[in-house]
Structure formats: structure tokens, C-alpha cells
Amino acid sequence: MSQYSIWVLEYSYVTKYHKSGVIYGAHNQGFVKLPYCYVLIKGNGHVAMVDIGYNNTDYGKHLADKFGVENWHSPREVLAGVGVKPEEIDTVFITHAHFDHFGNVEDFPNAKFFIQEREIAKWTWAMSLPDRLRWMMTAVDPGDIIRGLDLARQKRLTCVSGDLADALPGIDLHVAQDSHTFGSMWVTVRNDAASRTADNWVLAGDLVYVFDNIEGSGANVDVDTLYVPVGLAVGSQENLVMATEAMMKEVDYEARRVIPIHEERLSQRFPSRLMENGLLVTEICLADGETSKVAS
């Protein structure tokens, strides 16, 4: 029995992104395409998202002109690819407070949001630091914090302290402190609702960008594969590696069940469809009774 369908929805991309930004230490190894995506989880009476992208009105032109971010489409257009409207989203899990994950709350007027308290608390602390330490404010827009405040006043924001089981039935939240960010969060979908299940899916946020963060080459140390952390950590590489281990343990070390949303090659592992707007919909799994959104 599968309770939930999961789709990874591309909403924009960068065509040439330095591989060293994705894989720690991969210097001078060229470029990869970096899709910007969020995740839709639907089933069990809920329509939920993991992250929500960014608001093109605020950032789009600057990102397009200066950084080559292309083909941004709104949540309304992107969600239409799987037959969902933004107003139907009832729950949003924010993996971390970077602008491209937490930058679009106003498009989801009926959703309740979850974020780690530590993510807010430590960004707040970082903003109080002198200029010489401002690197720790990387990629956070105070406007997103303001909009988070508005959510809080509407009682639509829950600050989670640590792990939380059954945020929705069968969906668990996990914290990875001081890793990619101060309070990064990842999400487990226990798709058969059992506490010990063989049908877990992990949605990794930015703790894992691509498959190679999980199945990196181990040739240099004479092993088949090893975990290689992402290229950016406000916290430590150690914490990123240990978060990867925790995610892998959650899926009984079946790497394909850890879903990296910046992975260009997701469509090689899962059924997918290129929409007319040039963006990919990737179908990770289908709930019982749900019809495929990628089948032709």
C-alpha cells in the first residue's frame, strides 16, 4: 500500500554550474546543469510541498542577468503539470532558509509551514554579527524572514525543535544541525505508514545536491563508493556526511530512495516528462489509485 505520490518539479535551472559547487573538492572538473526544483507530496488527504522556490518578481531579473538562471516559471504553472493549484497546498516543509527554498510563501495562501527553530535562531544570530563575519548570512533574504513573521502571526508557521515524527501521517522531519545551513531539515515519507518500513523515501533538501554526493567515487581510497559532501556548508563537512549516513540508514542503504532535488539525472532513474515550458516533472512514486502525470 502506498499512501503518497511524490513528484520532483523543476521550476528553473542554471545550464552551466561549476561542478565544484556541487561536489566538495571537484575542482577544474567542468560544469553541470543545476535544476532548481521543489517536491510535491500528495495523498492521505494532504497536498504538501518540500520547499517552494523563489519569487521571480524580487529576484528573477537579477538572477537571469547576472547568474544565468533560466526559464523560471511560477508555482501555478509548474504545479499545473501534475494537476494541482497552489491554493490546494496545505503543508509546506522548508528544508532551509535560502532564498531559492523559502522565497515564495505568498503563493501558498492556505499552507501551514514547518521550519527548524534553529534555522531561524541561528540566522537571526548571524545577522547580528559584524561585517567581517557576514559570510554566514549567505543567500538569506531578510524579506523571507519578514514573510515568515507574517506566517507566524497568522499561526501558519511552526518552528520545529529537532526531529518530528508524523508531521503529517507517515511523514517525518529530521534536523541536520550545522550542516549545509545551521538548521537544515530533511524529510522522510514512510509510504506504507509502518514505523519500520521498506517503502521509505527521503527528500534531502540541499544536504545532498546530486547522486554523486551519495555514491561518489571511492577509487582514491580503494572503495567502490563513498559519501562526498556538497560544495557549501555553513556548518561542517562532517555533519553533512553524517546526515547522509542518517538518510541512507532511513532507506536501508538503498541510494535511489534518497532524492536530491538539484540532480539533473533524476530522469534517468525515475519516469519523467519534459513539459512544454522546457521543465521536467519527475515521478518518484505513485499512491494507490493515483494516475501517472508523466505517462504519455
Partner: peptide, 30 residues
Amino acid sequence: YAVLQSTSESVFGMTMVDFRHACCTCGAMK
């Protein structure tokens, strides 16, 4: 915030997010 945002001027680096330091734009200069 709204008033400050209205004073943003990228020529002087007055932007709400410093994208040059953002993980998702690093190395993606057009």
C-alpha cells in the same frame, strides 16, 4: 523592510540578497 527595499540599487551593491555569495549561483556567472 518595504521602504528599505525601495532604496535597493544594484550598482552600489544595495540588494537584499548578496547572490555572489549564494551556493545556488556560485560559478554560474552569465
